[in-house]
């Protein structure tokens, strides 16, 4: 990767997407030695309400810090899917949660629907870790940061005592994508 890679994590307040963006940015900037900028915008509500976190990763200096031609959009709410999908660049990637985003429109991008929240709730037992499951999925899909980097960054940010559950959530994210890709491959045959 050489140029600018734009990621937007869109959802609602309380889903932990800002933290997910921070972990991703830190993985790229500190552990992978690239440049990264993370920004966010949010409403007045601590829980609920619009929330988005942008991460730009580049080997070059990053000027404009916001995502405007996204390489990847993660949508954990219908509103963030519908609101941001138009800014995904041609050939970009749109990852969405299959239970929270029902109205999916096709376009010049690749759609990846996966049960992120369900995985967090069922497989890990905590809907709170949906952000980390998302992170795993993004890393598996794009390789934008190395797995070592994201794990280091995640462990550095996870509150004491939650390291294991976070690690499991991250791996569940990797697996979600692997399984989805296998299915896609099977379907193509």
């Amino acid at each position: 990767m050489s140029g600018r890679y734009e990621i937007r994590l869109g959802g609602s307040g309380g889903q932990g997407l800002i933290l997910a963006g921070v972990i991703l940015g830190e993985a790229a900037a500190i552990h992978d030695g690239k440049n990264a900028v993370q920004t966010q915008s949010y409403g007045p509500e601590a829980r609920g309400g619009m929330s988005k976190s942008d991460v730009i990763v580049s080997n070059e200096e990053i000027d404009y810090p916001k995502a405007y031609r996204m390489d990847l959009l993660l949508a954990l709410t219908q509103a963030s899917f519908s609101g941001y999908v138009k800014d995904v660049k041609p050939g970009g990637l749109v990852v969405y949660d299959t239970s929270l985003v029902r109205d999916v429109c096709e376009g010049n991008y690749r759609l990846v629907g996966i049960p992120i929240v369900e995985t967090a709730t069922r497989a890990i037992g905590k809907s709170m870790v949906a952000n980390v499951v998302s992170l795993g999925a993004i890393v598996e899909l794009t390789g934008i940061v190395s797995k070592e980097a994201v794990e280091k960054s995640l462990m550095g940010r996870a509150p004491r005592g939650t390291e294991e559950i976070n690690r499991r959530a991250l791996h569940a994210g990797y697996d979600l994508v692997k399984n989805a890709e296998q299915k896609t491959t099977a379907g193509n045959r």
């Binding site: 921070v22 940015g25 830190e26 900037a29 500190i30 440049n35 990264a36 900028v37 993370q38 920004t39 966010q40 990053i62 810090p65 916001k66």
Partner: peptide, 9 residues
């Protein structure tokens, strides 16, 4: 706000 809240190296 952008510079204040943005994260970078």
């Amino acid at each position: 706000e952008i510079v204040g809240h943005m994260r970078e190296k």
